[in-house]
Simulated assay, not measured.
Amino acid sequence: MKYCVECGSEYQDHVTQCADCSEIQLVDAAEMRRRGLPLPHERDTREFIRVGTAEDPLTAEEFVRLLEAEHIPVFSRARRAGTVDVLTTGNPHPWWEILVPEEFTQKASELIAQSKAKMDASADENAQAAEDEELENEQASAPGTAS
């Protein structure tokens, strides 16, 4: 058998190029192993568990970067983003779930919780600063005050 080094598809020995990946030459199992690439039956079969959610894609990306920095395998996927989902769940906004392998769930959950706490604190500080600025602007533009 021959294999594509890009997508890992398996082919008969007489085939020379991958049908899906343009112009990729196929190699045998020995070459795949030499390159450190898994054969199709050796693919990762770990179970990924949801350790958190994000309300927007930027937050999801932030969580992914945070976990990758700690060398935790991670991926995020959008959920409840379709029109029917809005009608059935009552939630008009999409959300993303953050998934990691089972053995990393505790550490990843803790890191996401810490990050959410920092984000919440920062949001509270920003809201307070905006209120203070608005109050200053109202006082400065109030009649009877010297400018």
Rank of each mutant, 00 (worst) to 15 (best):
M1T: 08
V5S: 08
C7R: 05
C7Q: 04
C7L: 00
G8M: 02
V15H: 07
V15C: 06
T16W: 00
C18W: 05
C18H: 04
I24G: 00
L26A: 01
L26R: 04
L26G: 06
V27R: 07
A29S: 11
M32W: 03
R34G: 08
R35D: 02
R35P: 10
L39I: 09
R43P: 14
I49G: 06
I49K: 12
R50T: 14
G52W: 03
G52M: 04
A54N: 07
A54T: 02
P57M: 03
E61K: 15
E61D: 12
F63G: 01
L66Y: 02
P73E: 01
V74W: 03
S76F: 07
R77C: 06
A78Y: 00
R79T: 03
R80G: 10
A81C: 09
A81G: 13
G82D: 14
T83C: 01
V84H: 12
G90L: 09
P94D: 00
P94W: 00
P94A: 00
W95Q: 01
W96F: 08
E102T: 11
E103H: 09
F104R: 06
K107R: 15
A108Q: 05
A108T: 01
L111A: 06
Q114N: 12
S115C: 10
K116Y: 03
A123S: 11
D124I: 14
N126I: 05
N126L: 12
Q128N: 12
A129D: 12
E133A: 15
E134Y: 14
L135E: 15
N137S: 14
A140V: 04
T145A: 09
T145S: 12
A146V: 15
S147L: 15
